[in-house]
Amino acid sequence: MIDAMSGLPLFSFLWPEMLWLLGFVLVLGAAYVWLDARRRRVAVHYPALRTVGLTPTGGAGWRRHVSPVLALLALSALIFAIARPQAVLMLPSRIETVMLVMDLSGSMRAQDVKPTRIRAAQQAAKVLLDAQPSGVKVGVVAMAATAAVAQAPSRNREDVASAIDRLKPQGGTALGNGLLIALTTLLPEATTDAALLMDDDIPPQKTADALGGDDKRPGAYASGAIVLFSDGESNAGPAVAQAAQLAAAHGVRIYTVGVGTTDGVVLSVDGWSARVKLDEQVLKQVADITGAEYFRLEDASQLRKVYRALSARLAFDKRNQVEITAFFAALGALLAGCAGLLSLWWFGRVL
């Protein structure tokens, strides 16, 4: 079986050829069944032998089989250990930098999320900020018609929180630009590819063909991540999907938090009115492309739920194959010890 997130087999062996030794376990099991049946036949034909303990007694019952079964299981576990099993485990990711991308478009003034979309996003961002370990740097990208770094990655939580509080809704939405600015801040080596995407004079197809990246699997970059707070609408800048593909090529995950409701609300600003809705499809696409996850924030009461989910993903986001030979070796030793002790206790002998 393959882990879809990491591309690694969930369970494998370094020396699978050693598993043929399990055939001996089957032979021993069959031999035990044959010997037990033979003793039973002897007991039927020579009942007097029971009095001197040469045949099994009915009083022992199921206990006669416990120790042999445990011994066979112990042998199987030890053979598995010889084959050196590996399993995909979730490990702490040693994340060093988190970039928060805040959508400041006019639609973020909508009040379908109380008190407003932008205020709910700011609250969620600050809760996530407080949850990060002291050694993790957090940066902020402000994104409207253009995008810029509002706070360079810093370990000073007060500076980052102040930068988040200063953000105000503006006009336009360049979602792709916001992601690219966050990516180049996180990984300066992606600047050249990001510049190609931002160049309006280059046709989209030619730009896509020119992009290189590191050709890593999505999520391979374990030292940083991007978290986007947005309602998903974009009307300027490069295509959002291309920005996500570039991030994926560099192994960077983009977690997306949808702020708003799918039904939306009519927003009136400066004499014009329009219904603004949460575009979940765009946000889910960004998360899927980069091997991350999408979350939805409909109201302030869900803020804690989103925070817990995001914190868990950022803290344990590294999948790695770990050899678990010691586990099977210890299990085999434990089962063998139990088999011997139970036999000694019940019958006064070791097996």
Rank of each mutant, 00 (worst) to 15 (best):
I2S: 07
M5P: 13
W15Y: 13
P16W: 05
P16S: 10
E17M: 12
L19R: 03
W20T: 11
V25H: 03
L28F: 05
L28G: 03
A30R: 13
A31Q: 05
V33R: 07
L35V: 03
R40K: 08
R40F: 02
R40C: 00
A43H: 08
A43G: 11
A43C: 03
A43V: 11
A43Y: 09
H45D: 14
R50E: 14
T57Y: 04
G59H: 15
H65T: 04
V66A: 05
V69R: 03
L72V: 01
F80R: 15
P92K: 04
T97H: 04
V98W: 08
S107I: 06
S107V: 05
S107W: 00
M108G: 10
Q111F: 00
K114S: 08
K114V: 13
P115E: 05
R117S: 07
R119S: 13
A121W: 04
A124N: 06
K126C: 14
G135Q: 06
V136Q: 06
K137S: 15
V140A: 02
V141S: 05
M143G: 07
T146C: 05
A147K: 07
V149L: 09
A150Y: 06
A150D: 05
A152T: 13
A152S: 11
R155F: 12
R157E: 04
R157A: 09
V160I: 14
S162E: 04
I164G: 01
D165V: 07
R166C: 03
R166V: 04
G171D: 06
T173I: 01
A174R: 04
G176R: 00
I181S: 03
L187W: 02
A190S: 12
T191I: 13
D193V: 12
D193R: 09
A195N: 12
D199E: 01
D199N: 02
P204C: 03
Q205E: 10
T207Y: 05
A210R: 12
P218F: 10
V227E: 03
L228G: 02
S234R: 09
N235K: 05
A236R: 14
A244Q: 06
A244G: 07
A247P: 12
A248I: 12
A248L: 08
I254D: 00
Y255D: 02
Y255R: 08
V257K: 00
G258V: 04
S268F: 07
D270F: 09
K277I: 07
V282M: 01
V282I: 01
G291Y: 04
E293H: 10
S301E: 08
L303Q: 12
A309N: 03
L310Y: 00
L310C: 07
L310V: 13
A315Q: 00
F316P: 05
E323R: 12
E323M: 15
I324F: 13
I324S: 12
F327G: 14
A329S: 15
L331C: 15
L331G: 14
G332T: 15
A336F: 09
C338L: 15
G340K: 06
L341A: 09
S343F: 01
S343G: 01
W345N: 12
V350H: 08
